[in-house]
């Protein structure tokens, strides 16, 4: 037996009427993960989450910094590049060197846009989306939180 579209719709209805926010189901090699419209805590971004999700480690892009009120995007349709770690953000590979990217730079999904240091361990941050860097929000050398928006990218070919 496998899951039909009807089954999934039924399961979604059950989740909707329950008090849970997400549901994970695994049967016969099929994995189903459902999440309510906004699983994020109330303090979510004022920006509509229109951006494509960066593939793996990045948290849901609707997450906002717990403390810093992220300023709204300057134009609609921008994709958030969110931090997947808490740590110190660096825009350049080494002090004194030019930043990885500036506003206007073309980036691919794999383009390194910064480094997050967690207790001397340097973690590369990738754009996760193809396009042009539209805004840079995170300050060099400052603490960034998990889920904090570091940059915004205008998606494009």
């Amino acid at each position: 037996m496998s899951l039909t579209a009807k089954d999934v719709a039924e399961i979604m209805r059950l989740l909707e009427s329950s008090s849970f926010d997400s549901l994970s189901l695994e049967m016969n090699g099929v994995k189903l993960h459902l999440q309510r419209g906004s699983a994020a805590p109330a303090r979510t971004s004022a920006v509509p989450a229109t951006a494509p999700q960066s593939e793996s480690e990045a948290p849901p892009n609707a997450v906002n910094s717990a403390v810093k009120k992220t300023k709204p995007a300057s134009e609609p349709g921008l994709a958030d590049v969110a931090s997947s770690l808490l740590g110190t953000f660096y825009r350049a590979p080494k002090p004194g060197e030019p930043p990885f990217v500036e506003v206007g730079a073309n980036v691919e999904e794999n383009t390194v846009i910064g480094i997050i240091e967690v207790m001397k361990l340097m973690n590369s941050v990738r754009a996760g989306v193809k396009g042009v860097v539209a805004e840079i929000l995170a300050e060099n050398g400052e603490l960034v939180e998990y889920g904090e928006i570091l940059m915004r990218v205008r998606p494009g070919a």
Binding site: P59, V63, V67, L85, L86, E145, Y146
Partner: peptide, 8 residues
Amino acid sequence: HRTVCIGP
């Protein structure tokens, strides 16, 4: 006074 998000 302040909250920092440390991860998932």
